[in-house]
């Protein structure tokens, strides 16, 4: 049984069918990449998994439990964190307060302190700027904060939506290095990326999305050598 099982989900925006019956699995410990062009439905899928959107059809199960109808605020305490597209850090809160919000559902103070120390060691910049308002951080720092905030919930799986979007090449390198570290520490990763080359570079398996359908899937290295993928997503 996979950790996260998506079965035949259909998602609508009003009358428009954005996701047209998609199924896929994420196994424990894997890094899975969802790649595809703008409007393919990548973000919609992540929003549906974490409960911000409801599918009209299909089921989603996590750790053997059906979470299709579970409200978004209850999902994080089950061990799933979501780093949303565009970071969406709380700009009016300080860096420290943002991280504290990440641990909102946790009670044990000592464990929260432990996670905080772990996040600060992964992102020393966040510790330097902990009293600063999140809105004053640079894009790359905000991305680090969004990732740190997600790690504060001590998740089993992290969903990451376009973590490299709008970042300078140096930050892109750093972000991908950190994703590998997160995976190495035992956390499962579901990664949505437009930067297909980078995503396939660190993923175990990948799914290719086109206008609400999965058109290709397989081993990440295999997909990297696939002619269609090369042409459409790797620009070769």
């Amino acid at each position: 049984m996979a950790m996260l099982e998506i079965r035949d989900i259909e998602v609508y925006y009003g009358v428009i069918k954005a996701i047209k019956g998609i199924s896929f699995d994420v196994n424990e410990g894997e890094v899975i990449a969802l790649i595809g062009a703008n409007g393919a439905g990548k973000t919609t899928i992540l929003h549906t998994i974490t409960g911000l959107l409801q599918p009209k059809k299909g089921t989603i199960s996590f750790d053997g439990k059906d979470i299709t109808k579970t409200p978004a605020h209850k999902i994080v305490s089950m061990g799933m964190a979501h780093v949303p597209e565009g970071r969406r850090v709380f700009s009016q809160l300080s860096v420290f307060e943002n991280l504290k919000m990440g641990a909102y559902t946790r009670k044990d103070k000592a464990e929260i302190e432990e996670s905080l120390a772990m996040v600060y060691s992964k992102f020393p910049r966040l510790e330097e700027r902990k009293t600063q308002l999140a809105g004053t951080l640079s894009g790359g720092e905000q991305q680090m904060l969004a990732m740190g905030r997600a790690l504060m919930s001590h998740p089993k799986i992290v969903l990451m939506d376009e973590p490299s979007m709008g970042l300078s090449p140096i930050f892109v390198e750093e972000i991908f290095k950190i994703i590998e570290e997160i995976s190495a520490s035992g956390t499962t990763v579901l990664l949505v990326e437009q930067n297909a080359k980078k995503a396939l570079g660190i993923a175990d398996r990948a799914y290719v999305l086109e206008t609400g359908n999965i058109v290709l899937d397989g081993d990440a290295t295999e997909l990297m050598n696939n002619e269609t993928v090369k042409k459409a997503y790797l620009g070769e």
Binding site: H73, I75, V76, F90, Q92, M101, Y104, T105
Partner: peptide, 24 residues
């Protein structure tokens, strides 16, 4: 307070607040 912080978070971004586990 934590509840006050959560209020500010909800006020700024309801969706992101839900992702933190805050009951909007």
């Amino acid at each position: 307070t934590k509840a006050g912080c959560a209020m500010k978070a909800v006020s700024e971004d309801r969706g992101a607040a839900q992702l933190m586990g805050i009951n909007v």
